[in-house]
Design a protein around this nucleic acid. Structure first.
Length: 300
DNA sequence: AAGTAGTACAACCGCATCCGG
DNA sequence: TCCGGATGCGGTTGTACTACT
């Protein structure tokens, strides 16, 4: 009689931008059950979304550790060089920038970098490496120069937070926490920042105030991996956000992910390049640094 | 002020790959 | 080894927003 239903039944499946309510449902479900088994997510949550849409929403927007906002020159350099080495393998490139999603990197490449390279093929960005330490975000320049170990961590993706500028880092964990705990109580969401235009709902804009400080993620990592109970992941306006233990236990996503990222796999040629470039450019850029341009608050 | 073109990015689509039975 | 379902990945689209005329 009836044949096998299609993978994504088009009938009754909602498409388009996600609503806050849908995000809350999805995040709550993943909090309880962990990510994965996406097929069951719409079934168990009642979300009128296909499994792929749920997975995409989580991986590209809701999952912890995602950094949003402008790409730094450092990140640009990495992306450009990796793209030249790997081609449009955005997932592979994204693995070197754990805070960025492949979708983000792909979009950034298509909308910014491709044009940049076309307009100025001899620019430092196009060379793929010279801009790595010409970071305008006042984050890693001095700190990495004075601390080779930190340089290696930042460059070689040992931590998903390693090159995170404290000033721009808006933890999606904050968003999730707010989604879970405070959204319903929040009377009026803050409007989007003027430089961002968003036609669809974005949880980042539920932040009542901008992120002013982020606690040292490396220390937090040690803490969380050491105890395995709760995760002190970010300091938001001075209030430490706590991940529910269940979030760590069910699927152990955050802990597993960070542990995995924190492991030191055998260096690939790309990673070796990153190390080599880091050392070479570090010296070169230190020569160019004029005093006053980089008074950097140490994050470590 | 209104219309138009350009930009940015979230989300979708379809194919590829993985994995368990 | 084969098959089918689940998931991952990259290309592409849709549309809100901004800048320009």
């Amino acid at each position: 009689m009836m044949g096998r239903p299609p993978c994504c039944d088009k009938v009754g499946i909602k498409k388009g931008p996600w609503t806050p309510e849908e995000d809350i449902i999805l995040v709550s479900y993943i909090q309880e059950n962990g990510p994965g088994n996406w097929r069951s997510v719409p079934i168990n949550t009642g979300l009128m979304r296909c499994s792929k849409s749920c997975r995409l929403r989580w991986t590209n927007y809701l999952r912890p550790g995602i950094k949003r906002g402008n790409f730094t020159a450092h990140e640009e350099g990495i992306i450009v060089h990796l793209q030249s080495l790997l081609g449009n393998r955005w997932a592979a490139i994204a693995s070197y920038l754990p805070q960025r999603t492949d979708n983000d990197i792909k979009n950034y490449w298509n909308t910014h970098l491709k044009k940049k390279l076309a307009a100025n093929p001899n620019s430092s960005v196009s060379k793929g490496h010279a801009a790595i330490f010409a970071d305008d975000s006042t984050t890693t320049v001095v700190s990495t120069a004075s601390n080779p170990e930190v340089t290696q961590m930042a460059i070689a993706r040992r931590s998903p937070f390693a090159d995170c500028p404290s000033s721009s880092y808006a933890s999606s964990m904050d968003n999730i926490s707010k989604l879970l705990d405070g959204f319903m109580k929040t009377a009026s969401p803050s409007p989007p920042p003027p430089h961002h235009h968003h036609h669809s709902y974005s949880p980042a804009y539920y932040e009542v105030k901008p992120v002013v400080e982020v606690s040292n993620p490396m220390l937090s990592f040690d803490h969380m991996s050491g105890t395995g109970t709760s995760a002190e992941l970010a300091c938001y306006d001075g209030v430490h956000q706590q991940l529910p233990t269940s979030f760590m236990e069910h699927g152990g996503y955050v802990v597993d992910e960070i542990k995995q990222l924190n492991q030191a796999p055998p260096l690939s040629s790309i990673e070796n390049w990153l190390f080599d470039e880091a050392e070479a450019e570090q010296v070169a850029d230190l020569m160019d640094l004029s005093d006053g341009c980089c008074s950097v608050p140490m994050m470590f």
